[in-house]
């Protein structure tokens, strides 16, 4: 596989380092992981310092450069302008906020809820297990986007709809995976050994069974984050995003409704979409990298 080429390149130099440091180094060594980390850091920086670093204030109508409306990338506007002369570079910087809020919140809530319910199903078994698994089967076939539109029609557009509905729908997949992982880990010899020492059940669950799901959880959390970033962009694109806040999806919606495609304003379409794609890609790659960090069997230097 692709990882094979780097096998055993520098196993010795790691030995002397403390454990935590070694882990973070591994994350950085994969090019995709490194790139994702850099892009994510860039997004976080943009979101935090948006007001300071963006050359124009996209929320201030007075700062629209109407004389340079709908112009391509230039020194004045590095990523071009929209049809009212709004600077797209500044808008992109401000749009990072919503994308990150949605991505991180759903990533955390979905995996937490899924892990708790999955562990409960595996731990209690019987009726609890059957009920939860039935709910999983039901929730798995509910389409997210139509439900989001339905809710948005009633309570008005907001990016919190994405967070709430993703949590409501997303736990099912995580729950099923965590349950399966715990059930299969239960039969592994070291867990049997722990049981033979008369270790209490909850202790086995928290010390041995749950940690074995961390690699899985890291991947699903990252995937969920990526999915929610895409869903938020989609919902904003359909006009159900936060009406007052600038988001990447909304920039694309404006490009669509104000005829960027008719005028060939490629920069207006290309850059916001690229930002969404790269952020989603970064989340997914980060998930794989984290999986490697948590799962010793996947590590490059590992011999099994």
């Amino acid at each position: 596989m692709a990882r094979g080429g780097h096998r055993n390149r520098r196993p010795q130099s790691e030995e002397g380092l403390p454990r935590r440091e070694r882990r973070s180094l591994r994350l950085l060594r994969r090019p995709a992981g490194l790139f994702s980390l850099i892009f994510l850091a860039l997004c976080i920086f943009c979101a935090l310092a948006a007001d300071r670093i963006s050359p124009y204030d996209p929320y201030d109508p007075g700062q629209k450069d109407i004389l340079h409306a709908l112009t391509g990338p230039s020194r004045r506007h590095p990523l071009g302008t929209d049809s009212f002369g709004g600077d797209l570079f500044s808008a992109l910087i401000h749009g990072a906020r919503i994308a990150l809020i949605v991505g991180f919140t759903t990533g955390i809530t979905v995996s937490l809820l899924g892990a708790v319910l999955g562990a409960a199903a595996a731990f209690f078994g019987g009726g609890v297990d059957r009920t939860l698994m039935f709910l999983v089967d039901v929730v798995m076939v509910l389409p997210g986007l139509p439900l989001m539109i339905l809710v948005a029609t009633y309570i008005g557009g907001s990016y919190w709809i994405v967070v709430v509905l993703f949590t409501f729908l997303g736990w099912a997949g995580v729950c099923r995976m965590v349950r399966g992982r715990i059930l299969s880990e239960k039969t592994v010899p070291y867990v049997e050994a722990a049981r033979s020492y008369a270790a209490p059940r909850w202790r086995i669950l928290f010390r041995h069974l749950l940690p074995s799901t961390y690699p899985l959880l890291a991947v699903t959390a990252a995937r969920t984050a990526a999915g929610s970033v895409l869903a938020e962009a989609g919902l904003s694109f359909l006009g159900f995003g936060d009406p007052l806040a600038i988001s990447w999806g909304k920039l694309l919606a404006e490009a669509q409704s104000q005829g960027a495609l008719l005028f060939g304003a490629w920069w207006w379409v290309l850059f916001p979409g690229l930002a969404v794609t790269l952020l989603a890609l970064s989340f997914i790659n980060l998930g794989y990298a984290l999986e490697e960090v948590f799962n010793p069997r996947l590590r490059r230097g590992a011999r099994c």
């Binding site: 694109f237 999806g249 694309l252 969404v276």
Partner: peptide, 9 residues
Amino acid sequence: SVPSFWLAM
């Protein structure tokens, strides 16, 4: 990670 509507555009 590519939004479908973006690819469409």
